[in-house]
C-alpha cells in the first residue's frame, strides 16, 4: 500500500469513527454513558480550573474592560446621574426611602417565594465558541440537577438566566437563555403566551408567535415564564422586556425581541431553583 493510500485510509477510518461516536451520542444508553464520562471529566478538572481561574479572572476582566471602555464610560455617566437622583430623593424624606425599600423588596421577592434555592458561584464560561453556557460550583452533592431553572440578580433587576443542562457531583453546566437551543414558554404582561428562544451572545431573545394568536404586543411589555410547556419553569419568573416589535412580511405575524433583565456577561453569583419539571 503506498503512502497516499495509507493516509486516505487513516482519514476515512477516523472520520467514520467520529461519525459513529456522534451517532451514539443520540442514542439512549450510549448517551447516558457519554454524559457520565462528561460529568466525571468535569469533576476531575474543576479543582484545577477553580484554582487557576481565581488568578486569571482579573485578566479576563481587564480584557473585557478594555473592549467595552466606551459602553463602560456611558454606563458610568448614567450611574452617576442615578446616584445623584437617588441622593436627592433620600434627602427628601426618610419615610419615602423606607417605602422605596419596601417596594424594591416586594418587587424582587415574588418569583422565588416558596421555591427553595441554592446559591452558586460562576466558575467558568463556555468552553466552546458555539454555545452559551456557564459552569457553576454546585453539583448533585448540593442538590443541583439537570432541568433546574437558574436565576440571577443584576442589581436593579433579577430574572431567569438559564437552566441546568448537566451536573457532576460538585459542578453544573447552565445552558443560558441566549443559547440557540434554549426554549422558554413565556407570558407577556398583556396575558398572551409565546415561546422565547435564544439568538446568541449579546442578542435579544426572539419570541415566536403561537398559531392563531392575534394579541397586541408593545415595546416595554414585561415577559415572564408562563409555566406552560410541561412546567419546565415555574410560572412568574421575570425574563426581560420587549425591546422591539416588527410586523413580518404580509403583516400576518410579528417579530418580537426581548432584552433580558439580567446582563449575562458579568455574572458572579446565581441561584439555582430546586424546581423539577413535574413527571
Amino acid at each position: 500500500m503506498n503512502r497516499r493510500t495509507s493516509q486516505r485510509l487513516t482519514l476515512v477510518m477516523l472520520v467514520l469513527a467520529s461519525l459513529t461516536v456522534l451517532t451514539l451520542d443520540y442514542h439512549g444508553e450510549a448517551k447516558r454513558a457519554i454524559n457520565h464520562l462528561r460529568t466525571a471529566s468535569i469533576d476531575v478538572l474543576s479543582p484545577v480550573q477553580r484554582g487557576i481561574s481565581a488568578f486569571v479572572h482579573p485578566v479576563g476582566d481587564v480584557f473585557a474592560g478594555a473592549l467595552h471602555y466606551g459602553s463602560l464610560e456611558t454606563q458610568n455617566e448614567k450611574l452617576r446621574d442615578e446616584i445623584g437622583a437617588t441622593r436627592r430623593e433620600l434627602a427628601q424624606s426618610i419615610n419615602e426611602r423606607s417605602a422605596a425599600d419596601q417596594v424594591l423588596g416586594l418587587a424582587s421577592l415574588p418569583f422565588v417565594s416558596g421555591i427553595p434555592s441554592i446559591p452558586a458561584e460562576v466558575i467558568a464560561d463556555a468552553s466552546s465558541n458555539f454555545e452559551y453556557t456557564m459552569e457553576i460550583d454546585r453539583g448533585t452533592s448540593d442538590g443541583v440537577g439537570p432541568g433546574m431553572p437558574v436565576i440571577a440578580d443584576s442589581g436593579s433587576s433579577g430574572g431567569l438566566i438559564g437552566v441546568v443542562n448537566s451536573a457532576s457531583s460538585h459542578d453544573a453546566i447552565v445552558l443560558l437563555i441566549t443559547d440557540a437551543r434554549a426554549r422558554v414558554d413565556v407570558e407577556l404582561s398583556s396575558g398572551s403566551t409565546w415561546v422565547a428562544s435564544g439568538e446568541g451572545h449579546g442578542e435579544p431573545l426572539s419570541l415566536s408567535e403561537p398559531s392563531g394568536s392575534s394579541s397586541e404586543v408593545h415595546t416595554g411589555n414585561s415577559v415572564y415564564t408562563s409555566g406552560l410547556g410541561g412546567g419546565t419553569y415555574p410560572a412568574g419568573i421575570p425574563i426581560g422586556a420587549v425591546s422591539a416589535v416588527r410586523s413580518s412580511a404580509g403583516g400576518f405575524s410579528q417579530d418580537v425581541l426581548v432584552r433580558p433583565f439580567v446582563n449575562l456577561d458579568d455574572l458572579q453569583y446565581v441561584s439555582v431553583l430546586e424546581w423539577l419539571q413535574p413527571a
Binding site: V21, L22, Y26, L37, S127, S128, E131, S166, I173, L175
Partner: peptide
C-alpha cells in the same frame, strides 16, 4: 508529524475537548 498522525491527534484531542462542551459528542473530533 504529517497528515495521518495529525488526524489521529485530532481525533483524540477532539474527543477530549468534547467532554467539556454541551454540543454533540464527536463533533469536535470529526
Amino acid at each position: 508529524a504529517g497528515p495521518s498522525r495529525g488526524a489521529i491527534v485530532g481525533f483524540v484531542a477532539g474527543l477530549i475537548a468534547d467532554l467539556f462542551v454541551v454540543t454533540p459528542y464527536g463533533l469536535g473530533a470529526l
